[in-house]
Design a protein around this nucleic acid. Structure first.
Length: 662
RNA sequence: GCCGGCGUAGCUCAGCUGGUAGAGCAUCUGAUUUGUAAUCAGAGGGUCGGGGGUUCGAGUCCCUUCGCCGGCUCCA
């Protein structure tokens, strides 16, 4: 009888009669791993546990490795198998359902897997508990997941017979000579799938269906719309519970909810979708954001510019927006036989300023910055609170420089971005370098030399600062490569904010020039750069990052003055006036309520400081200070408190006074 | 834009199989004068998103439209 030599990573070896399944081999070598394993790697390749090891032709030992819970690979398999279970349950409950694809998701913080289906009748949210129940029932039956390798023709036949046109389409596209399919025993489910999968449904214990939504087949708007059922799965109920809790935390921080509760902003149906109204409290935050940014811009050598919101349509032909971006622009409007169009971007306007005079190499680099409000015709379904809107203000800047100075400019942009985000309390970042891909349909502009020169500058800047980044081919816009900086918020979500982009397009189209040392005209290098991206969106990110509890310098109301009885009201007003004179934002609560109620109100408004004032404070000219996150911190003179509050504001401290040490 | 869900007082929500709207909070008024997360009482407030239809009768059923939510697509 032939044998196969198997070996674990730890060196354990055995010679077993072939063929033998991976599961049996593992049992011989490591009982514990055999019990825990979801799948295994055989000579590095992921396989099911019932994969049969044949007698090796060479004498080399077959390397086996159990893939164990706690690893991403195992979680991936778990979710993939749970997606299959979902499909099986749906087929079981709704015969005639057509299946699309059902992949696991690891990077998506919202969901763990999905399956796209077309059910005979549309499924609704109310069906989710029913489907989930059936999944549990199936899981408890300890049914086997079984792989089969069959000829492509046979697979096509099977799925055609089952009237699964989408699967047929997939097999035709993807399948080789033979294809692999997976069964779940005792269910009507078969899937065209490379696997691997768990051996038995008893491994699927902690899962939850989450949502149902529409999805186009293959993401193509022209193809039929299917229903996507989302769920997630973990190895233990505890992990699932923790994940659900995190999700609730995200919900608690939802900027749309906090925006209303804290009276920061609104969006009003009768005025239009995706248009933001900044209320006084949101306005106070915006003013601080903008003041800070403008001060920094000036310190860093930017010129602040202001440009119109609308321009002749002809301009947008020159810029190429009419050609490439018209779908995202508001329709033209006419005045005295001239057409105008709202601006979706600021670039052409900054170019206008550049072109208003002849530029010498001595003038460069020129840095124009604007908090420029733009309008974009976003589809209604994409709108989302402050995050995706139709009118917003970009903290936009354009750098015009010579090829020699561009590296320095990029380094400065990156430094600027990091400095800004640290001020707002972001500590972790993810940087992406998007470069040209091979896709010729994208119509990349600029020569190969341009692209490689630009990439050298971008990479040079990141390397100079020792910033790790991911290089993504094909992600660049057709007009140039870029660096995107994503920040991680307080609960670990990533937000794409900063972008630094080369532009080979506009300088050509607008025939930008500068006179070089040689007296000849040269084309300047143009870089677009936004830090916040959009002021509205960044505000939304901040609301969620802080959960509405803004640090002192940004807080819409910084201090609540709370007199204990109405005898104290005059003193309270005088304290408030005193603080306001120092540019602090103060509200006084003179309602005839008990102090506990006033504190509660202030606390719910997340006001950083409360001053509790009674007879003692009035007599002594002091204030009893209560800090938002720490409660009562004792009595001090009004002047001492004022100085403390000012220090916190000026230092843009992110935390309360005890932690900041002021 | 597409798919699904939802739209009742400022907010959060109740309102069963159709019988002509309700709670809590908020608001206002009065009482209370309070020492660190909700004092008590009373009052006002809704063309049930808009329009059309079915019906003796529609918040409830149907159609349509607008908006919101979750996704998809899009984000040169």
């Amino acid at each position: 009888m032939s044998e196969v030599n198997v070996q674990l990573k730890n060196g354990a070896q055995a010679s077993l009669p072939a063929p033998v399944t991976v599961a049996d081999a593992l049992k011989r070598l490591d009982r514990d791993a055999a019990k825990q394993a979801l799948i295994a790697r055989v000579n590095g390749r992921e396989v099911d546990l019932d994969f049969k090891l044949e007698a090796a032709e060479s004498g080399d030992a077959v390397q086996i490795e159990a893939v164990l819970p706690g690893t991403n690979d195992a979680l991936y398999v778990l979710r993939h198998s749970t997606a299959h279970l979902l499909a099986a349950a749906v087929l079981d409950l709704f015969p005639g359902t057509k299946l699309g694809i059902g992949p696991p998701l690891l990077d998506d913080p919202r969901y763990g897997f999905f399956y796209d289906v077309i059910a005979p009748q549309p499924l609704t949210e109310a069906d989710l508990p029913v489907i989930e129940k059936r999944m549990r029932d199936l899981a408890k039956r300890n049914v086997n997941y079984r792989r089969d390798e069959i000829a492509k023709a046979e697979a096509l036949h099977i799925f055609a017979e089952r009237d699964e046109p989408l699967k047929v389409e997939l097999i035709e596209e993807k399948g080789g000579e033979t294809v692999s399919v997976y069964y779940i025993d005792n269910t009507p489910f078969i899937d065209f799938c490379v696997g691997p999968h768990v051996a038995n449904s008893n491994r699927l214990k902690a899962f939850k269906l989450l949502a149902i939504s529409g999805a186009y087949w293959k993401g193509d708007q022209e193809r039929p719309q299917m229903q996507r059922l989302y769920g997630t799965a973990f190895f233990t109920q505890e992990e699932l519970d923790a994940w659900v809790k995190q999700r609730e935390e995200a919900e608690r921080r939802d900027h749309r909810r906090l925006g209303r509760e804290l009276d920061l902003f609104s969006i009003q149906e009768q005025y239009g979708q995706g248009l933001i109204f900044w209320h006084p409290k949101g306005g106070a935050v915006r003013k601080e954001m903008e003041d800070y940014l403008r001060d920094e811009l000036i310190k860093r050598g930017y010129g602040l510019v202001f440009t119109p919101h609308i321009a002749k349509r002809k301009l947008w032909y020159i810029s190429g927006h009419e050609e490439n971006y018209a779908d995202s622009m508001f329709a033209p409007t006419e005045l005295e036989e001239t057409e105008f169009r709202l601006k979706p971007m600021n670039c052409p306007f900054h170019i206008g300023i550049y072109k208003s005079a002849q530029r010498s190499y001595r003038d460069l680099p020129l840095r124009y910055a604007e908090l420029g409000t733009v309008y974009r015709a976003e589809l209604s379904g994409t709108l989302h609170g402050l995050m995706r809107v139709r009118g917003f203000t970009q903290d936009d800047a354009h750098l015009f420089c010579t090829p020699e100075t561009v590296l320095r400019e990029i380094v400065d942009c990156v430094d600027f971005a990091y400095s800004v985000f640290k001020t707002f309390g972001f500590e972790r970042f993810k940087v992406e370098l998007s470069v040209k891909g091979n896709d010729t349909t994208k119509g990349y502009l600029g020569s190969d030399e341009d692209w490689s020169h630009a990439e050298t500058a971008l990479v040079g800047a990141l390397d100079e600062r020792g910033i790790p980044y991911e290089r993504i081919e094909g992600e660049a816009a057709f007009y140039g490569p870029k660096i995107d900086i994503k920040v991680e918020d307080a609960i670990g979500r990533l937000w794409q904010l900063t972008t630094v982009q080369f532009d080979f397009n506009l300088p050509e189209r607008f025939e930008l020039e500068y006179i070089g040392e040689d007296g000849q005209a040269h084309r300047p290098v143009m870089v677009h750069r936004a830090l916040f991206g959009s002021v509205e969106r960044f505000f939304g990110v901040l609301i969620e990052h802080y959960a509405g509890a803004f640090p002192m310098w940004l807080a819409p109301v910084q201090i609540a003055v709370l007199p204990i009885t109405d005898r104290i009201n005059d003193y309270a007003e005088s304290v408030a006036r005193n603080l306001r004179a120092a540019s602090l934002r103060v509200e006084t609560n003179v309602r005839s309520e008990k102090i506990g109620a006033k504190i509660r109100t202030a606390q719910l408004q997340k006001i950083p400081f409360m001053l509790v004032l009674g007879d003692r404070e009035m007599e002594e000219g002091t204030v009893a200070v209560r800090e938002r996150s720490r409660g009562d911190i004792g009595v001090m003179t009004t002047e001492d408190f004022k100085a403390l509050a000012q220090r916190l504001v000026e230092s843009r401290a992110l935390v309360n006074i005890a932690e900041s040490g002021v």
